[in-house]
């Protein structure tokens, strides 16, 4: 068995133990998956408070659904399906009352600390970096929700077409088309900045 397959089986095994009432296994699942779920949601909704709230909801739903869990496929697919569903719902509900503030409110700690050789970045480098980050965030935010989810899973969570398709409940060819359109849009907005 490959290391990846063993990792996946471990998730299912842990979830089955949670189903049987083992709370420690839930803590282990949380340890393994909270980071990617929070990262995904923070990029989906671009609002730290909301993404944390939605991530809590994801794990709460996992916990509440433990009694009926069956390891039919990847645990992460299930997890991202719940996360995507919650994020898309939130984005849809917010659409009518959308304002610019959530985008301009930069999330604390987001963006890698820039490092150039051993020197601290100059003020100019730091400003350029912040400008690029803001541009990326705006470009992602401008994507339709489903395209956005597909790009985030593909780019930042290294998911293949098949897993994204299962997560979004659509065909692989639909995912390819979603990704193609999304990257075309991103390209139009971002390629000048590299």
């Amino acid at each position: 068995m490959t290391a990846a397959a063993a990792y996946l089986e471990r998730d299912a095994e842990l979830m089955l133990r949670v189903r049987d009432g083992d709370e420690t296994s839930f803590a282990l699942l949380l340890e393994r998956h909270r980071r990617p779920v929070i990262h995904f949601l923070s990029r989906m909704v671009q609002n730290p408070a909301v993404s944390e709230e939605l991530a809590q909801e994801v794990f709460l739903r996992v916990y509440k659904a433990r009694a009926t869990y069956e390891p039919t496929a990847k645990f992460t697919t299930w997890l991202f399906r719940i996360a995507t569903h919650l994020a898309i719902n939130w984005l849809r509900d917010r659409r009518n009352e959308k304002s610019e503030d959530s985008l301009d409110r930069s999330a604390a700690g987001e963006g890698a600390p820039i490092q150039i050789a051993d020197r601290a970045p100059t003020k100019e480098q730091e400003m350029l970096y912040q400008a690029r980050l803001a541009e990326v965030r705006r470009a992602i935010d401008a994507l339709p929700a489903k395209q956005r989810a597909a790009v985030l899973m593909h780019k930042y969570h290294e998911m293949g077409y098949a897993q994204i398709a299962r997560t979004l409940n659509c065909s692989e060819s639909a995912v390819k088309s979603l990704l193609f359109r999304a990257y075309e849009t991103l390209r139009a907005r971002l390629v000048h900045m590299a």
Binding site: E110, L133, A194
Partner: peptide, 9 residues
């Protein structure tokens, strides 16, 4: 490469 700039919180 441009998307790499966005590391998460």
């Amino acid at each position: 490469a441009a998307l790499d700039v966005w590391t998460p919180a």
